[in-house]
């Protein structure tokens, strides 16, 4: 079973790498506008983009070559694990990705773990005490937080912690002090949803016949909760957090720009404006593989949590 999971995800990864790169390449080529001009604007800025700069870019990058030739070049490089150089900055795409995607991942990981610290205790408590004051308060706060764009949550946190109490910097990166506010903004927004998810799963499991049976057969509440409720609550929650993590990596542009955090969302937007094809292909490819990896981790967690899957494997 485990080998089957790994094999399936590996095949998926190879397919994703090829498909994502190919698709982005041809989609970019369908976009209107002269590539050489766009790249020149990205490189030299709006005060200096002119025909001479565009011509220099065209000659340097060989943009006159046929699209198929350019595609084959990319594919050959891909087979050698070479993502090429950015057309705008001239730096290797792998170096750009390590910096920008690295920071996005750092923020996403910290925010996800922080959201678990908030959501799990809150969700479990509310699920056990359905209808209590805390359950109702958590529902109210969840709705309030989810109704805000995450950007507003960030701004409010900045006003409180950076401006009022001067405890943390407003924006920037390089050191953990800069990580706290953007991560907390994202964590609050994520926890608003996942805490309700955990609360519902908990409520459902505690009301189920198998949990009741566990109690009837003489297990203490603690024992029944640990062995029968926890894994069943965890299964949907793990899958949900996997999806949240994926959307977090690709969708935190607003938080990145508010906190001047170097991230892949911002880098990708700029790469598209500047028609920086290797950068877009590289970013799409690495993010595609990352999503496969996150799915794999979710699968492995579920495999570990769910004895039915393991038994199926043994048979």
């Amino acid at each position: 079973m485990l080998i089957k999971i790994l094999g399936r995800r590996l095949a998926q990864a190879v397919f994703v790498a090829w498909a994502v790169g190919t698709l982005t390449f041809f989609l970019m080529n369908l976009l209107p506008g002269d590539f050489a001009y766009r790249i020149a604007a990205g490189r030299y800025g709006y005060d200096y983009v002119n025909q001479a700069a565009a011509d220099a870019v065209r000659a340097e990058l060989g943009l006159d070559r046929s699209v198929w030739l350019q595609y084959l070049d990319w594919f050959r490089d891909l087979l050698r694990f070479n993502l090429g150089d950015s057309l705008v900055s001239g730096n290797p795409v792998s170096q750009e990705l390590a910096h920008q995607l690295g920071h996005s991942l750092q923020l996403a990981l910290f925010a996800s773990l922080l959201s678990l610290l908030i959501a799990v205790p809150l969700g479990l408590y509310a699920g056990r005490q359905v209808g209590s004051a805390l359950d109702r308060a958590s529902l109210f706060i969840s709705v309030l937080l989810r109704a805000q764009p995450v950007f507003v949550i960030g701004l409010v946190l900045v006003l409180i912690f950076a401006l009022q109490f001067q405890l943390l910097p407003v924006a920037g990166f390089g050191g953990s002090r800069y990580l706290i506010l953007p991560a907390l903004s994202l964590a609050l927004s994520m926890a608003a949803l996942s805490s309700r998810m955990i609360r519902n799963a908990t409520h459902q499991v505690l009301g189920s016949s198998y949990y009741q049976f566990a109690r009837f057969k003489g297990l203490s509440e603690q024992q029944a909760f640990t062995h029968h409720a926890q894994p069943n609550i965890a299964l949907p929650v793990v899958a949900f957090i996997g999806i949240q993590a994926v959307s977090l990596i690709e969708g935190i542009v607003m938080i990145e720009s508010l906190f001047s955090w170097p991230g892949i969302g911002h880098a990708l937007a700029h790469a598209i404006f500047g028609r920086d094809v290797p950068m877009i292909q590289g970013a799409a490819l690495v993010m595609g593989l990352l999503f496969v990896l996150i799915n794999l981790l979710v699968d492995l967690c579920c495999y570990w949590l769910d004895p039915r899957q393991r038994e199926e494997g043994l048979q």
Binding site: L155, V158, L159, A162, L163, Q166, P169, V170, A171, G172, S257, L258, F259, S260, H266
Partner: peptide
């Protein structure tokens, strides 16, 4: 030097003394 994309974020940096 730090690039700040959003004007409000830059103003808050000035106001907070960062």
């Amino acid at each position: 030097y730090l690039t700040g994309h959003r004007a409000e974020s830059r103003a808050l940096q000035a106001q907070s003394g960062q």
